[in-house]
Simulated scan of single mutants.
Amino acid sequence: MAVVSVVSSTIHFALFHRPLQISTVCPCSSSVSCRWRKTASRKQSLYSRGKDSELMVRRAVGEGGESGSSADVVYRGVYGPWTVDSDDIREVILYRSGLVTAATSFLIAASPSFLPESSTISHVIKQNHDLLYAIGTGGLGLSLVLIHIYVTPIKRFLQALWAAGVIGSLATYVNSALPLNESLPSYVFYLPLSIWLVGPLFASLTGLVFKEGLCYGKLEAGVLTFVIPMLLLGHLSGLMGDGVEHNLLALWMVLFAVFAARKFTQPIKDDIGDKSVFMFNALPEDEKRTRIQKLEQEQQ
């Protein structure tokens, strides 16, 4: 479970202690080219920290001068203009829906901790713990597939953590929880050492909320970055009392609910980022060099 405690620092190091390279080879040997690439890297870094570095141009529709729809808004990115299309909107909605699914499943699954033991609702929820765990895991996985992160290795790292957590969860359930007729969450609760196997799943969630807190300055996401590993590591070590664990779980539930709900208050373009960067990364190497040369000429 040590991976949960280091995932935030790993992402922070990757974002702030290494330059954001769009191409592994500097296309030109001139100092002008390299200076331009450093400027582009700084711009992207600023955007990833939530600073809006785009120039937005609204096109008038008709003679009335009213602003157009989202498709009529052009954003000036590092590598050229871009617009929000229907595919972008669909991806962002699915990304946010995945987060809502994960948060809702977690809230329902954790609620018996705050309900009377003899409650019918509590009993029904406990009977469906594994289903809720699977639904929440699927929602988180969907969001990690659709999340927009400029540094691809970070995205792949979070996805790898999720996959490792899924494998560990399945192994724990099939080999340990199921033979004892226990749900996976209950088994992990009563046998803290099993957190080592399911922990990477929550480490991927920690990385996601860290990214959200870093990019958009969301307080609830920033606090979640610490609450999640604190609760899991505290339960794993046995050094945290039941009362403290109970309070941290309640805080996790509240913050996760606020975080998921507030995602739908953001403009669609926020979760897209600078689309020109992703468009540039998708180009073949020769087209990348051509694009950079063209941008250099425009700046002269």
Rank of each mutant, 00 (worst) to 15 (best):
T10L: 15
T10E: 03
I11T: 01
H12E: 08
F13R: 09
F13P: 00
A14E: 11
H17L: 11
Q21W: 06
S23K: 02
T24Y: 11
C28N: 03
C28L: 15
R35K: 14
K38M: 14
R42S: 12
R42K: 14
K43S: 06
Q44N: 07
S45N: 09
K51C: 08
K51L: 14
D52Q: 07
D52T: 05
E54W: 13
E66A: 10
S70C: 04
V74A: 06
Y75M: 06
V78N: 07
V78R: 04
T83H: 10
D85L: 09
R90Q: 10
R90M: 13
L94Q: 12
S97G: 10
G98Y: 09
A102P: 01
T104V: 15
S105W: 13
F106P: 00
A110K: 07
A110D: 12
P112G: 07
P112I: 07
I121A: 14
V124Q: 08
D130C: 01
D130E: 05
L132Y: 07
A134D: 00
I135G: 03
L142N: 03
L142W: 03
V145M: 14
I147K: 06
I147L: 15
T152V: 13
L158E: 07
Q159M: 14
L161I: 09
A164V: 09
G168L: 09
S169P: 09
S169V: 05
L170I: 15
Y173C: 04
Y173V: 04
V174D: 03
N175A: 12
A177W: 08
L178A: 13
L178T: 00
P179L: 10
E182L: 15
P185V: 05
Y187N: 04
F189K: 11
L191G: 00
P192M: 07
S194A: 12
V198N: 01
T206Q: 01
T206Y: 04
T206I: 03
E212G: 03
E212Q: 08
L214I: 01
G217E: 05
G217Q: 06
G217R: 04
K218H: 07
E220I: 04
E220W: 04
F226T: 04
P229Q: 01
L231I: 08
G234C: 05
S237C: 08
H246S: 11
W252S: 01
M253C: 14
V254H: 00
L255D: 01
L255R: 02
A257H: 00
F259S: 04
A260S: 14
G273D: 05
F280I: 02
A282T: 01
A282G: 02
P284K: 11
E287M: 14
E296D: 09
E296N: 11
Q299G: 00
